[in-house]
């Protein structure tokens, strides 16, 4: 099961890289970046998964004594938790930069933004 999640996350990362490298529209590049982000999170959470174990929350199904032998790895989950919020902050800053670029140059095509000396 972990193989499927890891393969899916890795393929999503590759789709994101493909979008970032081959597209010309800046919004499209930012979409590629956010796909890369999601794929990375899937890979990290998949690495923390262990077979036949439950979520790391102590309740009736998981007594505190058995926590270390019956729960999955909590560290990647804690890392991904903060990484998702930081990813949102980075995406919003990228979007605002794209918006300002569009307002000053009136285009989103990176090929047309290349030189601004002879404007």
């Amino acid at each position: 099961m972990i193989h499927i999640a890891l393969a899916g996350g890795a393929l999503l990362i590759f789709i994101g890289i493909w979008g970032m490298l081959t597209k010309k529209n800046i919004i499209r590049i930012i979409i590629g970046f956010s796909l890369f982000d999601t794929g990375l999170h899937v890979v990290l959470v998949g690495l923390g998964y262990l077979k036949n174990r439950t979520a790391p929350i102590v309740d009736a199904d998981l007594p505190a004594k058995a926590a270390s032998s019956q729960s999955v790895d909590p560290v990647p989950q804690a890392i991904v938790l903060t990484a998702i919020v930081i990813g949102l902050a980075v995406t919003s800053v990228l979007l605002v930069f794209a918006l300002k670029l569009y307002q000053s140059k009136n285009t989103l095509d990176i090929n047309k933004l290349r030189d601004n000396t002879n404007d």
Partner: peptide
């Protein structure tokens, strides 16, 4: 499915 309900809530609300 990967037993990470905290991350799932964050991703559903934010992502």
């Amino acid at each position: 499915i990967l037993a990470a309900p905290d991350v799932a809530m964050t991703e559903a609300a934010i992502g």
